[in-house]
């Protein structure tokens, strides 16, 4: 049956894929493989979003991240041609990095078990309609601020890329 056990199992499976892919993306010494693993990570996260009743956000994740950001990163890789077959250099502070990462991860996981959280509420049927209303009413500021940020990003990035003054 499609009960919550199945849902949790599938969520955990997506999570496992995400964690493995993220590890691969962070640990591999070949840039191209790192990017491919990053793509797999994003897809797994999109699956998790879908299970959390955020179907719209999940597809946006695929659309913007996999179809946009990954393409952008690949373009940058090609334009700077650093993805030759030589492995990348890794910092000398790997031990320190591992310790900090363990500390952060341990603390977050401990915090996850610490708090008693309420049960998840029932989500409305068509998420998109509610999202649209939210963007036009309560979250209008966020909506317009994104517009401004996008404008700022395109101007900044063009100025940086072209190496000229405003």
């Amino acid at each position: 049956m499609l009960d919550s056990d199945v849902q949790i199992a599938l969520f955990a499976a997506f999570g496992g894929v995400a964690v493995l892919a993220a590890l691969a993306a962070v640990l591999t010494r070949f840039l191209l493989r790192s990017i491919v693993a990053f793509g797999a990570f994003l897809t797994a996260i999109a699956g998790q979003f879908y299970l959390l009743a955020a179907d719209f956000v999940a597809l946006i994740q695929i659309f913007v991240y996999v179809g946009g950001v990954v393409v952008l990163i690949l373009f940058a890789l090609m334009l700077s041609a650093v993805g030759e077959k030589h492995p990348l250099a890794v910092s000398e502070h790997r031990g320190l990095g591992a310790v900090v990462a363990y500390a952060v991860g341990g603390w977050l996981v401990w915090a996850a078990f610490g708090e008693d959280l309420p049960e998840a509420g029932e989500v409305p049927g068509e998420t998109v309609a509610f999202l649209g209303r939210a963007f036009l009413d309560q979250q209008l500021v966020a909506f317009e601020v994104i517009g401004i940020i996008l404008l700022a990003a395109v101007v900044t990035a063009l100025v940086i890329v072209r190496g000229e003054r405003l």
Binding site: A22, V26, A101, A111
Partner: peptide
Amino acid sequence: GLLFAIGT
């Protein structure tokens, strides 16, 4: 939390 640690 795990993903955040990996990212860090």
